[in-house]
């Protein structure tokens, strides 16, 4: 067998604080959630979703948890359930949220606090590199 080069263990990707790396397996777990998100690229579908969110979600083979997290607009939960932000913003765009509001909702800050942090230069890398290294 050829020895293949691996520069680091994939486990290392779990060592970044407050971060989930979107993988092929996550993509598959969120397939129907993402199919729902991409359906919102059509104005007719957006209207149907807004008219009756739960009924619209039942058109998709999403898990009960995924449907509830959509109804709750719980983006951290949606990411835990396999979601990726580029799909999920179709939902926040449908709601008329800015991307900053959607993204900021995943932190422990209010929208105003998050906006202020960004204006002040964003979240520092110090202490946010590695869970293990605490740096």
């Amino acid at each position: 067998m050829t020895t293949r080069t691996r520069l680091y263990s994939l486990e290392e990707l779990n060592d970044i604080p407050g971060t989930r790396v979107f993988t092929a397996l996550r993509s598959r777990q969120a397939y129907h959630l993402h199919k729902f998100c991409m359906s919102l690229m059509d104005a007719t579908n957006r209207d149907a979703f807004k008219a009756d969110e739960a009924a619209y979600l039942d058109r998709f083979r999403m898990s009960v948890e995924q449907k509830q997290a959509v109804l709750d607009r719980d983006f951290n939960k949606l990411i835990d359930l396999g979601g990726n932000i580029y799909f999920l913003v179709k939902l926040s765009n449908t709601d008329g949220w800015s991307a900053q509001r959607a993204v900021g909702s995943m932190t422990d800050m209010t929208p105003d606090e998050y906006a202020a942090m960004m204006r002040a230069g964003g979240r520092s890398i110090q202490g946010n590199r590695s869970i293990r290294g605490k740096n």
Binding site: T19, G104, M106, Y114, M117, G122, R123, N128
Partner: peptide
């Protein structure tokens, strides 16, 4: 350039990088 759009680390900016 630097940005993170998900999770509790969202808003990360690294001007040195």
């Amino acid at each position: 350039m630097s940005h993170q759009l998900q999770g509790p680390r969202a808003g990360l900016i690294n001007p040195e990088f």
